[in-house]
Structures are given as structure tokens and as C-alpha cells.
Design a protein around this nucleic acid. Structure first.
Lengths: 330, 330
DNA sequence: CTGAAAGCGCTTACAG
DNA sequence: CTGAAAGCGCTTACAG
């Protein structure tokens, strides 16, 4: 049984109100009494009940964070940044994963709401375009990388994909494959649009057999690469939905005896830390992960403060050239 | 303002007690009334306040999980397993990271306690041996990989390190380096003991210059490898504290132009998914990550139920031979 | 400066 | 089967 404010009041011969005021640095209280009560509370090992406090104040200092997948380092890096910014603002985090499962994502909001959290951040939402109508709760929410939602902070995927394609074409590649994520989300479609638009600008016809679908993870990348290398006309470069996919692609190519980048260039998207340490290190499109997390928290805090003037943010990614891409061989 | 049980009671012309009983499937209630109230609650978008319920029932169905580092896939894989098992038992998780910072780890317990969580799991504790005396709270706790704590579930690191060394010696290696974690935790010391004990069994003298300290991450591995390869007598094999360290070592060796495993064998510890996809794929000691998570939750649940008969669990790791190790060249 | 009282949203004996 | 009442641990007007 945890000790309560009442226990302290009894021992100090004051009312619970006084104890509460002392502990919360209420201004009009004799400082001797305040110090005495604080010390007593400490010696008794008192730790306030957040639930009780939240109930009476009708507010909470914890933010809910839902990430698509604990096993994708992108979300973990984002999460680490979100936690850091939240902590700096005296909020703590209730973190949950929905394992890229839409049902589970939807259920999460009940959990968040039951806890009466101050606000929520969703990264990698599968509800995507339907978010506004589906999750219509009175709790402020910010989505990361879901451009269609009015309160969101996203990397410009279209622009990122274009950078990647321009770069590969600049290296002389024409047979450029794309390994998609496999779901019709904005984040996917924008990359694909970038891919198509650069190809058509360069008058390179779209070869449908070069567009294969992954699963945003390593295994999808492996499967996709095997599929691509079985083609009569193999690609000379493979642009992947994300770094994890690219790692799968790299792995499959190397296992089949292809040399990267000599036989085939490979590009990722995300800019995960580990992508720099692969062999060969991965050329990729770097998402501004820290900014994504920072701005998401700031936006959510504004929303919580009742500031409705906020509007979506789109951040530019950056091309990082490393060793997995090279000029095409004649 | 969220709607409450009172709002429903008013609309249904019954007392709040009745609403509560209907919603909680209290047995003695007319089923027509029950259904009617349930429907009404749903149509009004009622979602119960967990804080209020916890306050009155004096219990909570959420578990606190503190992990050392979001950026180490080992903890994330463990976390995913913990969450799965917890969810299956109708508990949800309050997850937090302490960023391998002891101060932060200590602070976390106040946060957990303020929330009156049902129990907590700590993975990668830095308080380590001091845990019992430091964190003496009335909330049940299970530690993962902290053998000295009475309620813990751990991989046998001593045995794991021995497997690694036996294997490397079996391949003819004698100059075997060890990259440590850099902190005097049990999890570290046990590996080191395994390392020493196998060497001495084989009458191989310990060469202190082959024992260098990393930081349990990629960068520590890189630094350590550079240090080792600057030695007059370079190691022919490097055994690393964990896979992330090994990835750093691999990277540094390759950058310096060494071929792995031809010029030097490299071994990790953990058995991360990604370690299989490196080039070369990493020989490692596989921790039973799923079992670790599963048993930790089960043990915590027992503790919460007041079952004090539980005792620590030690699980055996497994040697996974892949492509980063080879027989020594003459 | 301090106490008594009301109330946050629930649950649950206690009567009926 | 159902309502009135008490209470979980706090905070905060309202008096004094």
C-alpha cells in the first residue's frame, strides 16, 4: 500500500490540503512548514499518484507514441528523438507499436484515449488518408510521414525519389528497378511518382517488370532482388523503398555472386545509421529524422496548448552518396 | 470534455452504478437493460477513464519496461517480444529508454511509481548489482540479463563466451582479441571470464594488449579494431561483446583493406537479425531473445500475483556459424 | 497562512 | 435487479 498525502498530514498534524500545497510549492505557505512537510514526505518515501492528480486536474503530461514497427531502426531513431524532445518539455511517453497491422493501429487509439493522454504521435500510419475520418477523437494527434493529414510532419518523398533517380540516371543507368513497400500509402505513392516522373523526363520508358513489391523489410528486399535478377533484362540499378529493403537487396545480390556496385547499383531511402556500416556502404536518401521528431513534438505541444494555427510541415531529404552505387559499366 | 458514466446514466434514466455494472458485465442485471446501456454508451462514444478505474480498484494493467537503448536492435527485438506476451495477457506497456545513463535509469523508477504500474521489466540495467538496495520499492521488478538480481532472466554469458572461444581455438586461432563493453557490469564480466577461462584451459597466455574496450555500439567497435590492427602482433580473430560492436569491427577492418575472414575472423554476440545480412554474415552467439522476453513477462506476472516462489532463470545461448569466421591461415 | 468541503470518474459493499 | 453512499488520492475554490 503506497503512502498517501493523508498519511503525511496525520504525521505532521496538518490537513491534507496543506500537505498538497506544501508539496506543490503553493505560494502562500510558511516556508518553515513547507520545508518540514517536504522533508517528512521524503523520509516517508512518498511518491504522488499521477492518476489521482490527472483525474482532478483533468490533464496529463504524457504523450502517446505509436510506431509502425519496433524492428525498423528508422522508427527507433525517430522514437529516440521524440522522447528526447518530449522529456525536455516535461512530458513522458507511452510508446506502443502496431506491427504494421492496421487493426492494431486502430485499437491503439482506444488505449490512448482510456489513458486520457495529452496527445499522440503516430509514425508510419496505415490508416493514412482515412485518418481524419477514422480516428475522430478529441485528443490532438500529429502524424509523421502522412502528408494528407492536416497536422503532420513529413519528409518530401517525391523530391527524395527524384533525387535518387536523377543521380542514378546521371551515372548512366537506364534499367532502373524500383522495389516498393507493397502498400498503397502516400509515403509509397509519392516515391513511385518521383520515380516515374524522372524517368519520363528523361524519355526512359517505364518497364513494368522492373517494378516489384517488397514489404519494407529485409525479406521483401531479398525476394524482390531474386525476382529482378531472374529477368531476361536485368536492372543495372535498384532503387529501394527504404534502407532495410536495400539491405535485403544487397544481401540477395551478393549471395547470388553479383558484385555491388560493379554489377548492379543499389540505393536505399531513410539514411539509417547502420546503412553507413554495410559493406558496401549504402547510397541513400537521408530523411531528416531528428527534425521529424522535433517538429512533431513541437507541433503536438502547440495543438495541446489549443493553438490551431499549426499547419503541416514538409522537410527536404538529402542525397548521401556512398559505395553501393557506381557509373554503369559498358 | 470526455463523456462520463454520469452522462450515460442521465440519458438512460438509471444510476451511475447501474451503468458501471452494465458496462462491466456485472452478473445480476437484466440483460435487456444491459444491452441497451452498452449500446447507448457506444453511440455516445464513451471510453472509460483508466485513471479513475485504477484509482478505485487500486490496480493497473500496465507494465513498465525500461530498455537501455532504443538504438540497439537487441533491446528492440526483446521489447517486441515483451509487448507481444504482455498483450496476450491483457497488459499494456509503458516503455522508456534510459540511454545507457545510470542517472536516467534511476529516475525512471519514480516515473513508474508515480503511475502506480503493476510491475516493471528492466533490460540492460546499469545499476546492476546495486539494484536490490538502490531501487527498493514496493513494485515488483524483473531484470533481464542481470544475473545478480533475485528475479531475473538471463542468457548464460559465461557459457556463451566459452562457446565462442572454443570455436575460434578449434579453428586454430591463438591470437584472439576481445572487445569489451567498457563497463563493469555482470553481463560484461561473465563474457570476460569465459574468454579467460577457455584461453587458460588451452594454455594460451592472456595478452593484455588484445583486450580493448568498446562501448557496446558500432563506434566502439571501429575504435577498438583500429587499435587492435595497430598492434605489432595483430589478432587473427576478434571476439566482440555484441553484434553491434562486431559490425563496427567488420567495418573498420574492411575500410583498412583487410578481408574478413581471410585476414581476421570476427565474432559477435546477440544474434541480431541484421547480423545475418551483413557481408560477410556474422558468426555469433545467439541469445534466446524470445525466451528472454517471454519468461520475463511470465515471471513478472507471477510476482504481481503475489507468488514469491519464483527464482532466476538462466538460458543457454547457441553458437551460430556464418561467414565472418574461418580457419586460420598459415 | 490553513482547514473543511467538494469533486475528478469510477467501483463496490450495503440496503432494499 | 437497482440506487444511494462511500471512497480511491489528489487539488482547489471557499471561508476564515
Amino acid at each position: 500500500m503506497p503512502i498517501s498525502i493523508k498519511d503525511i498530514a496525520n504525521k505532521a498534524n496538518v490537513s491534507p490540503s496543506t500537505v498538497s500545497r506544501a508539496l506543490n510549492d503553493y505560494p502562500r505557505i510558511s516556508s518553515e512548514r513547507k520545508d518540514q512537510i517536504k522533508e517528512l514526505a521524503k523520509s516517508m518515501g512518498y511518491i504522488p499518484s499521477q492518476a489521482a492528480r490527472n483525474l482532478v486536474t483533468q490533464q496529463s503530461a504524457t504523450l502517446g507514441v505509436a510506431v509502425a514497427d519496433y524492428l525498423d531502426p528508422f522508427y527507433m531513431c525517430l522514437l529516440a528523438n521524440i522522447e528526447e524532445v518530449a522529456l525536455a518539455n516535461d512530458y513522458d511517453l507511452f510508446v506502443s507499436s502496431f506491427y504494421r497491422d492496421r487493426q492494431r493501429e486502430e485499437k491503439l487509439f482506444d488505449a490512448f484515449y482510456q489513458k486520457r493522454l495529452a496527445g499522440i504521435i503516430v509514425a508510419g500510419s496505415l490508416i493514412d488518408d482515412g485518418y481524419l475520418s477514422q480516428v475522430n477523437r478529441s485528443i490532438p494527434a500529429v502524424l509523421v510521414n502522412c502528408f494528407s493529414y492536416p497536422f503532420s510532419v513529413s519528409t518530401d518523398k517525391f523530391s527524395g525519389a527524384k533525387m535518387a533517380l536523377e543521380y542514378l540516371i546521371g551515372l548512366g543507368h537506364r534499367q532502373i528497378a524500383y522495389v516498393s513497400q507493397g502498400q498503397n500509402l502516400n509515403t509509397e505513392l509519392l516515391r513511385f511518382q518521383g520515380y516515374r516522373s524522372v524517368l519520363s523526363e528523361h524519355n526512359i520508358p517505364i518497364d513494368e517488370s522492373l517494378i516489384v513489391s517488397g514489404d519494407s523489410g529485409v525479406f521483401g528486399g531479398i525476394k524482390a532482388a531474386n525476382q529482378l535478377m531472374a529477368l531476361p533484362e536485368k536492372p543495372s540499378a535498384i532503387f529501394c523503398f527504404n534502407d532495410m529493403t536495400a539491405i535485403g537487396v544487397l544481401n540477395a545480390l551478393q549471395k547470388q555472386g553479383y558484385q555491388v556496385p560493379r554489377d548492379c547499383s543499389v540505393m536505399g531511402f531513410d539514411g539509417l545509421d547502420i546503412s553507413a556500416f554495410y559493406h558496401p556502404s549504402l547510397t541513400t536518401i537521408q530523411q531528416p529524422i531528428y527534425q521529424l521528431g522535433y517538429q512533431a513534438v513541437e507541433m503536438l505541444l502547440d495543438l495541446i496548448q489549443g493553438d490551431d494555427e499549426v499547419s503541416s510541415v514538409i522537410l527536404e531529404p538529402e542525397l548521401i552518396v556512398r559505395d553501393s552505387t557506381a557509373r554503369i559499366r559498358e
